[in-house]
Design a protein around this nucleic acid. Structure first.
Length: 369
DNA sequence: GACACGTGGTA
DNA sequence: TTACCAAGTGT
């Protein structure tokens, strides 16, 4: 491949077609770092609104390091992979404590931050500091799987090394950041799952196109099967307030809040599961009343059907939950639910509740019991 | 290397 | 409706 010509074609295309993303206007190391962490395993279009709100709320490392975890998670709510938010805050604390609040330019130091792997380290080093480091993401893997007509699954380590080498050999000394972003932008806008070879600025360099196999690149290894599970969640209302709990840091949805509930076991009805889960998780006896709604959602390899019930407390005294499966919890006013970060499925349950007049106006104490 | 970790858009 | 999958990292 003629590297000089390839790079010229690619950068010329990028100057015309590159998107006007907010962090491209002021590519500070902090902004680039945040945008790259947010963009992991999602699409840039989805990141923009989160990024704008984040920079408004946490404009610099000091502010972020001092922020409450609760506020950080609330700002991350809906983006998924919530350990990223925790790692960002851990990193901010490290950078303030050990680097005087100045973002480091050394790729090895960037790479050592929690949540920063080879891709993000290369992206920040090249985009924010102009260093000639490769930033190989799924876009770049796909682009080079076609350019070089690679017939091995792109998830294999040797393919990644091949692509990193190829990027290193092509990366221009003048603007490595634009080069890396141009490769990713090409993958996102032109060389996507359905390759748009007719609009591609580097089609003349592409071996897969020459061989007529661009559509069958990259080679993808088959995924693991999806698991379907049934769950039950309970909205326990007591004197106009609702019970929620905060999930453990080592579990799925670390630090997020939820309505108590759990998996429906074999031979169990959702109602029975709910009674059992409330007993196990919060040591409360409850009675599921009406079924509110059924919510289906997916996370990682699970496809969940969540049966949602309105519940009431059945007991002699005031309910005193014991949080066996959570790090915190309590009864909160429905109006305050939006202060807490919830997983997507529970957020949809809250949306449903907000359309229920009984919850929008706080209950009178005796309307259910 | 395999697996866990979330979510919403797209075909 | 189902399946795929996206600016990946940690264990």
């Amino acid at each position: 491949m003629d590297g000089k010509l390839f790079t010229t074609h690619l950068l010329d295309w990028y100057r015309v077609n590159g998107r006007d993303l907010p962090w491209r206007r002021d590519p500070s190391p902090y902004a680039i770092w945040i945008s790259e962490i947010m963009a992991q395993q999602t699409q840039m279009d989805r990141v923009v609104s989160y990024f704008t709100r984040w920079m408004d709320r946490f404009p610099d490392l000091i502010t972020l390091a001092r922020a409450k975890e609760e506020d950080v998670l609330k700002s991350w709510e809906g983006l998924g992979y919530y350990s990223r938010a925790r790692n960002i805050q851990r990193s901010a604390a490290i950078l303030v404590r050990e680097h005087g609040g100045v973002f480091p330019s050394d790729p090895a130091v960037i790479r050592a931050l929690p949540g920063v792997g080879p891709y993000t380290a290369g992206a920040v080093a090249s985009i924010a500091f102009g260093l000639p480091e490769p930033a190989v993401d799924a876009n770049v893997l796909r682009v080079f799987a076609r350019l070089l007509d690679l017939d091995s699954p792109v998830s294999e380590a040797p393919v990644r090394r091949t692509v990193e080498q190829a990027v290193r050999s092509l990366i221009p000394a003048g603007n490595p950041g634009d080069f890396n972003q141009a490769l990713m932008e090409l993958g996102a806008l032109v060389c996507s799952r359905r390759p748009g070879c007719t609009q591609c600025p580097v089609a003349s360099h592409c071996l897969a196109r020459a061989a007529g196999v661009a559509e069958s690149r990259p080679v993808i290894r088959p995924r693991r099967d999806v698991l379907r599970i049934e769950m039950a969640s309970g909205v326990l209302l007591h004197q106009g307030r609702v019970l929620i709990q905060k999930r453990r840091p080592d579990d799925v949805w670390p630090g997020l809040w939820e309505f108590p509930g759990g998996c429906v076991e074999q031979g169990e009805t959702p109602r029975q599961a709910l009674v059992r889960e409330f007993r196990e998780e919060v040591e409360l006896a409850v009675e599921p009343l009406e079924k509110l709604t059924v919510i289906t959602y997916a996370y990682t390899r699970y496809r969940v059907t969540m049966h949602c019930y309105l519940c009431r407390y059945v007991g002699p005294r005031e309910p005193q939950p014991v949080f066996n499966e959570a790090v915190a919890g309590g009864f909160v006013s429905p109006e305050r639910l939006h202060d807490y970060a919830f997983p997507a499925g529970h957020r949809r349950l809250i949306e449903f509740l907000e359309q229920d007049s009984r919850l929008i106006k706080p209950f009178s104490a005796d309307s259910l019991s």
